[in-house]
């Protein structure tokens, strides 16, 4: 850890010394999140400092936005409609790159920080996610699906946007808390930090976070996936043994 930090400082040194642009030095409280049997979610702290060229204090107002993004996956979104008195899946649409987790926090509302184009480039804000829908739907219909999908994931805690989630101290130090829910999917995550000044992203940096199942949970999930037949037999054996033990226990009474 310390060696890594030293190396980082060494890499950053020329940037800090030479460039006239500020540099971000970000970190996260946890690089590895382990899902164990009692996992009910976690809270990530993203923090760091802004290094200004020549150590000068910032002249204007600076803002920070942090984005935690989970692995991107293709998904199928279905919409229920009332057909013959029954609510059932009717329309559907596909997205090629829906992040499985997305949380953004900023020091001020995203809309006040950057214009829509910049927000789209850096995927800042739930409105600016690049979901890559497979073409075909009318724009209006596409919009309905986008909103429905983002809203669903937001209520599940998988997507979030916090307009005042980043605290900045003296324009130099910043910190933000991101909540990771229990339903979080596993995989390689990134935590990106953006320094925003006058509507422009002037610096950015990223850290990797790994979320993985551990211990028995990892073993069970892997077994179910890789050795599914053996896993099935194990499930049957377990259930037979439990049933038999119960019948023996209660017969004695």
């Amino acid at each position: 850890m310390r060696a890594a930090k030293a190396a980082l400082a060494l890499i950053l040194a020329p940037l800090v010394l030479g460039a006239d642009k500020p540099v971000l030095v970000p970190d996260v409280s946890q690089r590895d999140i382990r899902i164990i049997y009692s996992f009910t979610g976690a809270e990530l702290l993203l923090f760091g400092a802004v290094l200004y060229p020549g150590g000068r204090a910032p002249t204007g107002k600076v803002d920070i936005a942090v984005v935690v993004k989970g692995p991107v996956e293709p998904v199928l979104v279905r919409e229920k409609q009332k057909v013959a008195g029954i609510w059932m899946n009717a329309d559907s649409t596909r997205y090629l790159s829906a992040p499985s987790f997305y949380a953004v926090a900023s020091s001020r509302p995203i809309k006040a920080l950057v214009d829509q184009r910049t927000a789209a480039i850096y995927e800042l804000g739930l409105d600016s996610l690049q979901l890559s829908p497979t073409a075909g739907a009318l724009p209006q219909e596409q919009r309905r699906f986008d909103d429905g999908f983002v809203d669903l994931r937001r209520r599940h805690g998988l997507y979030s946007e916090s307009a005042e989630g980043v605290e900045i101290t003296d324009g130099v130090l910043y910190r933000a808390r991101i909540t990771i829910p229990a339903r979080v999917p596993v995989g390689a995550y990134t935590a990106e930090t953006f320094l925003i000044q006058d509507g422009k992203v002037v610096a950015g940096a990223a850290r990797d976070i790994t979320i993985d199942k551990e211990g028995m949970e990892r073993f069970v999930a892997n077994a179910a996936d890789r050795w599914s037949l053996t896993y099935g037999f194990a499930a049957i054996a377990l259930s037979l043994v439990l049933g038999w033990v119960a019948s023996v226990l209660f017969r004695r009474r």
Binding site: S29, Q30, I33, I35, I36, Y37, S38, F39, T40, G41, A42, E43, L45, T179, A182, R183, P185, K213, M216, E217, R218, V220, A221, A224
Partner: peptide, 23 residues
């Protein structure tokens, strides 16, 4: 920094590995 958990530590909460959620 030690990992933080949300809310109170509920002893009986258990994570279902296939369903992918805590119950």
């Amino acid at each position: 920094m030690p990992p933080k958990r949300l809310g109170k530590a509920r002893v009986m909460d258990i994570y279902l590995p296939i369903a992918g959620l805590s119950v």
